[in-house]
């Protein structure tokens, strides 16, 4: 019984961190209606940045946040501005911007292979002051970095929710995701909103990266397994919904952890996809998604 509770809590902890990685993806999709296949690679860039920060300064990894998060924000902002925007403009009247999807896929390959060339294929682990520290509670053990990570996710989620609901830029982003033409007619500059949205999405990856580095290893294709989970989470939680992404992440974490107590870990992946398909059949727009006509 205790095993199940331990698994449940671990699932919630790891799941929130999965959710954090998915928040950026859902934000970008919600605003730009574009599936960003380079999302995992952006996470990978953030993780390498956090890794090198820790290795070079030896400081507490959470001090990397004020460095890595803004760095990734600008990385995403300019990536949108210089690489994606021109393609986007060319496809302005097209309902489904397919070429943009192809471009993000291209960015994914380029970034991953660049990282492979520059950093090599090995797995690197950063030993930080919180690495390996455990939090004990009634014979159940929880990894401290995961607990901190889950906490940071909640704070980010709340901040983003507040930002979107109450700030001027946040409302402009919401308006653009609801009706981009009408938003233009309000005087909202589309290009700027997209840049900011992409920047924000990338910044979320940066935050997730700092949270992961204390207990996870980094290598050039580390983005791939997280990316796949992020897609499932985003669809599960509803495209464009931030609470949906976090909740979806927690659900995925719980399924992985609790499911593994009853069946071999190999099967939990299958179980995950099963649940995902089931939700899609019953509520295609996801748990918190809106019925949109894109």
């Amino acid at each position: 019984m205790l095993g199940i509770i331990e698994a449940l809590i671990n699932g919630i902890l790891m799941g929130s961190i999965y959710g954090l990685t998915a928040v950026g993806l859902t934000l970008i999709f919600g605003v730009m209606k574009v599936i960003n296949f380079a999302h995992g690679s952006i996470l990978m860039v953030g993780m390498f940045a956090a890794y090198w920060f820790v290795i070079l300064t030896g400081w507490n990894p959470y001090f990397a946040i004020p460095v890595v998060v803004p760095l990734l924000f600008w990385f995403g902002y300019y990536m949108q501005s210089f690489i994606i925007k021109p393609i986007f403009e060319a496809e302005k009247d097209v309902r489904e911007p397919i070429t943009v999807i192809i471009v993000t896929t291209g960015i994914w390959y380029v970034l991953d292979n660049l990282a492979l060339m520059i950093f090599g294929a090995e797995f690197r682990v950063a030993k930080t002051s919180v690495t390996g520290q455990v939090f004990e509670f009634y014979e159940m053990y929880f990894l401290l970095p995961k607990v901190i990570g889950a906490g940071i996710t909640m704070v980010c989620g709340i901040y983003l929710y507040w930002f979107l609901k109450h700030s001027r830029m946040g409302k402009a982003i919401r308006a653009t995701s609801l009706d981009r033409e009408a938003a233009s007619l309000m005087g909202i500059k589309q290009a700027k909103i997209y840049n900011v949205a992409f920047g924000l999405g990338s910044a979320c990856c940066g935050m997730a990266a700092c949270v992961l580095i204390p207990f996870y290893y980094v290598y050039p294709t580390v983005g791939v397994p997280f990316d796949i989970k992020a897609f499932i989470i985003v669809v599960l939680g509803g495209l464009g919904s931030i609470p949906g992404a976090i909740l979806g992440g927690i659900i995925v974490g719980i399924i992985e952890n609790v499911g593994a107590q009853f069946m071999a870990a190999t099967w939990t992946e299958l179980l995950l996809y099963g649940v995902f398909l089931f939700v899609l059949l019953v509520k295609p727009s996801g748990l918190f998604g809106q019925k949109h006509d894109y």
């Binding site: 095993g3 790891m14 107590q261 870990a265 939990t268």
Partner: peptide, 21 residues
Amino acid sequence: LNEPYPSTASDLTPVVIKLKR
């Protein structure tokens, strides 16, 4: 315990919890 797991899994904590139990 007879526990196969996917090599590319991003989180193996569930396996370790089972092992410990």
